[in-house]
């Protein structure tokens, strides 16, 4: 689905490119913002001992699968969605 169609409490599977990643050691979460060209959505995971989410940094294409909730800041946020990096290569 496209992000522009995403509403609160909807389940979504979406592909996008990670625009930014935030690591907050105090609040204990990792958050990425992805963009699919129609809109943006944040995805948030709490920090565990190993943080596999760090593998999806800015520029990486990713598939997210989760439910959209309204986050603290009013933005739609996927809480701990399943994720998978999609290999695409910009060579050089």
């Amino acid at each position: 689905m496209w992000l522009i169609d995403l509403g609160p409490y909807e389940r979504c599977r979406v592909v996008g490119v990670v625009r930014s990643l935030r690591v907050d050691p105090v609040e204990g979460y990792i958050e990425v913002t992805i963009d699919d060209g129609t809109g943006q959505v944040a995805a948030r995971w709490s920090i565990r001992r190993a943080a596999p989410e760090l593998a999806i940094g800015p520029g990486v294409a990713v598939l997210l699968d989760g439910v959209a909730a309204v986050g603290d800041d009013g933005r739609l946020t996927l809480q701990a969605p399943g994720f998978q990096a999609i290999p695409y290569q910009v060579s050089g």
């Binding site: 625009r19 930014s20 690591v23 907050d24 050691p25 760090l54 800015p58």
Partner: peptide, 21 residues
């Protein structure tokens, strides 16, 4: 990115880190 994030989490720094394109 991955290395910086890992180092950040394991260095007991308590400031949030943001990575942008």
């Amino acid at each position: 990115t991955e290395k910086l994030g890992d180092d950040w989490l394991s260095s007991s720094i308590s400031v949030p880190l943001e990575l942008h394109e």
